[in-house]
């Protein structure tokens, strides 16, 4: 997994609550057996005026000019600013895969759905929870200034605005460690193989029907 390093990223605002993973990546694209290539179809139903199907060449599709990510000023955005309960609904990891493939490394919102939140970390992405009033401030600032970028520093757990204001954010120690070092969860867990085996032996003895 890619290490998460400090960067300065253009921010794009998606001003609606309860953005679900069906919206982030519609079901027809879930038929793929790969992990990559979902970026062109991220937010497909909002982003394009026609109906998208897997394999379509998106460079020639009619864009929905009203959709915020299609605005020229947000091209190349790496930070997505969103509202409450971002990533709700389906557990599809295709949602973070699509956002990552699109170019987003960070999503900032007042709250996230649990499974989506978890899935982000497994893909080297950082979901950041900020208080709703702070997210509100950021929405206003981003919309007011073209080229608005935030410096994301995971080591310091800070977001720094163009005028030098700093927002602190929280992150689990373990997840931070994994992101910063690009660590693979499975490899880490298998370091505890002996513990797992010991647990399994005990579990089998007490509930043998689980191992029939």
């Amino acid at each position: 997994m890619q290490k998460f390093e400090k960067f300065s990223g253009l921010v794009a605002p998606l001003d609606r609550a309860n953005v679900d993973t069906d919206a982030i990546i519609p079901k027809q694209f879930l038929k793929s057996i790969k992990r990559s290539g979902f970026g062109p179809y991220a937010f497909d139903e909002w982003r394009y005026l026609d109906h998208g199907e897997p394999g379509m060449d998106c460079s020639t599709r009619p864009l929905n000019k009203d959709f915020v990510l299609n605005q020229t000023r947000y091209q190349g955005a790496q930070v997505l600013l969103a509202r409450e309960n971002f990533g709700c609904g389906s557990s599809r990891e295709h949602a973070p895969w699509a956002l990552d493939d699109y170019g987003f490394r960070v999503v900032i919102a007042p709250s996230f759905a649990d499974i989506f939140f978890n899935n982000c970390f497994k893909n080297g992405m950082l979901p950041i929870k900020l208080a709703a009033d702070k997210v509100d401030e950021l929405f206003k600032a981003v919309e007011a200034k073209s080229g608005y970028a935030l410096v994301v520093d995971l080591v310091q757990q800070t977001l720094t605005t163009p005028d030098g204001a700093v927002y602190k954010f929280e992150v689990d120690e373990f997840r931070k460690h994994c992101l910063l070092n690009g660590l693979d969860d499975i490899g880490l867990t298998l370091q505890h193989k002996a513990d797992i085996s010991a647990f399994e032996t005990k579990h089998r003895a007490s509930q043998p029907w689980l191992f029939a």
Binding site: R35, S91, R92, E93, P96, I115, N118, N119, K122, N123, D172, F174, D185, I186, T189, L190, I196, E200
Partner: peptide, 21 residues
């Protein structure tokens, strides 16, 4: 019982465990 993402599907297959809080 709860839903997991694909990385966790792989993790559970390989380790019989889930990382959780």
């Amino acid at each position: 019982a709860h839903g997991i993402g694909t990385s966790e599907v792989e993790h559970v297959m390989a380790t019989q465990c889930l990382v959780a809080k």
